[in-house]
Design a protein around this nucleic acid. Structure first.
Lengths: 211, 211
DNA sequence: TTCCTTCTGTACCGTACGGTACGGTACGCT
DNA sequence: AGCGTACCGTACCGTACGGTACAGAAGGAA
């Protein structure tokens, strides 16, 4: 059980944005965290020291800018990658703990909260929600499932579908934390608390799914 | 293990709204479910066949109207009440199942999703989020904890705090369902699926917390 | 009847904001 | 040098929407 971090989108941090566009999107993201959905194009242009016309040339319209912000952020998130070559019970638990701590860390970050807020706010009339879902929850599932399935192959875990097992782990890990943060409750989890909770969730998960 | 339904706010369905105000709030709620946060005062007035001036007289401003909608809806939600006089292992499980099924039913309803969406959208600049939290997640905890504590008193369950146990049950029950619905994923759970999932969650919960 | 209260319907005001136009500048490239 | 491209800053337009004002209907009390 070892190793490093991988980009959440494509291998070599290739994104569809130029460096300058990245700067603009960083400024927009920072603003989004501050003011939420009431972010205006004027404010973005001012904060990024670029003209509104450039914003519209690059991103089309406000919706396109928001989508680009989400994709830009997703291209920056890194998650741990695990090595399944030599897997045992302790390795599975370690993998769950590392993955869980990282996931919880991301989900409780200001950035994630802000992006989910705006995606939820616009979910009725936009597909921003599905993009967030795709780059967030769905991408996470694809990361964890190999570990779960390796555990099952090694006769360490028992479940019908890795999807169901992932959802259960997610529930144990996140509980109502994310929703409460989205609703504005000021929850501050230290790195230690996050680690401890991820360890607890991994432990509970093993109680339910280990052979 | 028996019995009925209680109002989620005060005993006798006394709310701070007149019948006519309730009609207006019902119309507003229906509209909110349809169009989400971009609900306008003009639309509400039209849908409710009342004048804008009346809306402002009754509810102060748009924010006040939204708060009133939340409180109006909360005053209509009913949850099952359980009888703890004769409690045993089967009774605890039954209580969890009934409670869980009702909670999941509420959380996956169009109304709940719409209200949570608008509360989340405005969480940065308004206290609507805390009101939703108070009437939703928090009120639910107060309903379930007596059952959990009765189970502990009867030596059937073991946990440190009923809060932690409740959060774990919530996690097992809701998992990522609510977030995905908030983000616009069309999840339709039939009453049977909800019941089955509540039973599964109750069962898993007992594996973790029964003595 | 007259007066008062409460409500509806509509017209109106001010402003914020998405989107566009355009002049001016920096920096290539030939 | 001349030209094109890409960008900044700013002024501007149109509209949607929160909030207010007001005229008049409905009904109740005297």
């Amino acid at each position: 059980m070892t190793a490093g971090f991988i980009q959440s989108n494509s291998a070599l941090n290739i994104s569809r944005f130029t460096p300058r566009q990245g700067e603009v999107l960083d400024a927009a993201l920072g603003l989004l965290v501050k003011v939420g959905d009431k972010l205006t194009m004027n404010e973005v242009a001012k904060a990024a020291s670029c003209s509104k016309e450039t914003l519209y040339n690059w991103f089309g319209d406000r919706e396109g800018l928001l989508i680009s912000i989400v994709q830009w952020q997703a291209s920056k998130v890194v998650m741990p990658e695990v090595d399944f070559s030599r897997i045992d019970r302790v390795g599975v638990i370690r993998g769950l703990e590392i993955f869980g701590a990282n996931l919880l860390q991301v989900l409780t970050s200001d950035t994630s909260v802000a992006l989910n807020r705006v995606a939820i706010a616009r979910a009725v009339s936009s597909n921003l929600g599905s993009i967030v879902l795709e780059n967030g929850r769905f991408a996470m599932g694809k990361r964890l499932k190999p570990l779960l399935e390796a555990g099952r192959d090694a006769q360490l875990l028992s479940f019908d579908t890795s999807e169901a097992a992932y959802r259960c782990f997610f529930g144990l890990l996140v509980q109502d934390t994310q929703l409460r943060m989205l609703l504005g409750e000021g929850i501050n989890m230290s790195a230690e608390q996050i680690k401890a909770h991820a360890a607890w969730a991994s432990n509970q998960f093993m109680k339910l799914y280990s052979t």
